[in-house]
Amino acid sequence: MKPKGLIVSVQAPEGSPMRDPHVIAAMAEASLRHGASGVRLESPEHIGAVRRRCPQALIVGLWKRTYPQSSVYITPSWQEIQAVWAAGADVIAIDATDRDRPGGEALAALVGRATRELGAVVMADVDSVANGLRAAELGCQWVGTTLFGYTEATAGQKPPGWDLIGELRSRLPADVGLICEGGIASADQAKQALSLGADAVVVGTAITGVDLQVMAYLARLAEAA
């Protein structure tokens, strides 16, 4: 199973009225009805809500949780992997950077268990070409540029990770799906990602990020005032 086309990230920040399972499920259904190939969802609660409302949906699931002494927060441990899978995800997205994980768990062990014990497709959220290639070697079937610009090693760099896509596509095995995620703000940019070699593009804030979009508009209007 390779990713294709548009995957819509349907998420909402903590404290937002949009962060309600029924609202998330409605936005996911609207995205799928209009042709999105899948949705990317955060938390078992939201994954379950969308699975019940859209039983045929392709769901990329993750769970953001923070642990002391580790900056890894996207599905960081085996506990989160199990919960995301049990909630109904088809693909489990995990942080696949080279940072230390909570409890000292090894990325290789987590990917191995997810593929062997659960039979899950694993999406590696990475920040560099090296980490993307390593993730594929460990057994991740999808690689995404999700964390480019969001790790200590890429601090100060702004997504999308255009420079990662071409090199990853040329060096990854042909059967590994490549996804451009992070910073895609327009349909033109989404098209550019595919033209550079991505199999699919994940778009979130530009489509479903009501809270952040309103704040961005107001900030620009304040400049004019």
Rank of each mutant, 00 (worst) to 15 (best):
G5I: 03
G5W: 04
L6Q: 10
I7L: 14
S9F: 08
Q11E: 10
A12Y: 11
A12R: 07
M18I: 04
V23Q: 12
V23A: 14
A26V: 09
M27Y: 03
S31Y: 01
S37H: 09
V39E: 13
L41Y: 12
E45P: 02
Q56T: 12
I59R: 01
V60H: 04
G61F: 08
W63E: 15
R65P: 06
T66V: 15
T66C: 11
S70G: 06
Y73E: 14
I74G: 05
T75K: 06
P76K: 05
S77M: 02
V84P: 10
V84Y: 08
V84K: 14
A86P: 07
A86K: 10
A89M: 04
D90F: 12
D90R: 13
V91S: 00
V91E: 01
A93H: 02
D95K: 00
T97H: 03
D98S: 10
R99M: 10
D100E: 13
D100Q: 11
D100L: 12
G103E: 03
A106N: 09
L107G: 04
A108R: 10
A109W: 00
L110D: 00
V111G: 02
V111N: 02
T115N: 05
R116S: 15
E117S: 13
E117Y: 08
L118T: 05
A120S: 14
V121C: 04
M123W: 05
A124N: 07
D125H: 00
V126W: 08
S128E: 07
S128G: 06
G132Q: 09
L133I: 10
R134F: 13
E137G: 12
E137A: 14
Q141T: 03
W142M: 11
L147F: 08
Y150G: 09
Y150M: 14
E152K: 12
A153H: 09
A155E: 12
G156I: 12
K158P: 06
D163E: 13
R171G: 08
G177N: 02
E181F: 08
G183R: 06
G183Q: 01
A193W: 04
A198G: 03
A200E: 07
V202Q: 01
V203D: 03
G204T: 03
I207M: 13
T208V: 12
G209L: 04
D211M: 15
V214I: 15
A216S: 14
A216L: 15
A219S: 15
A224W: 12
A225N: 12
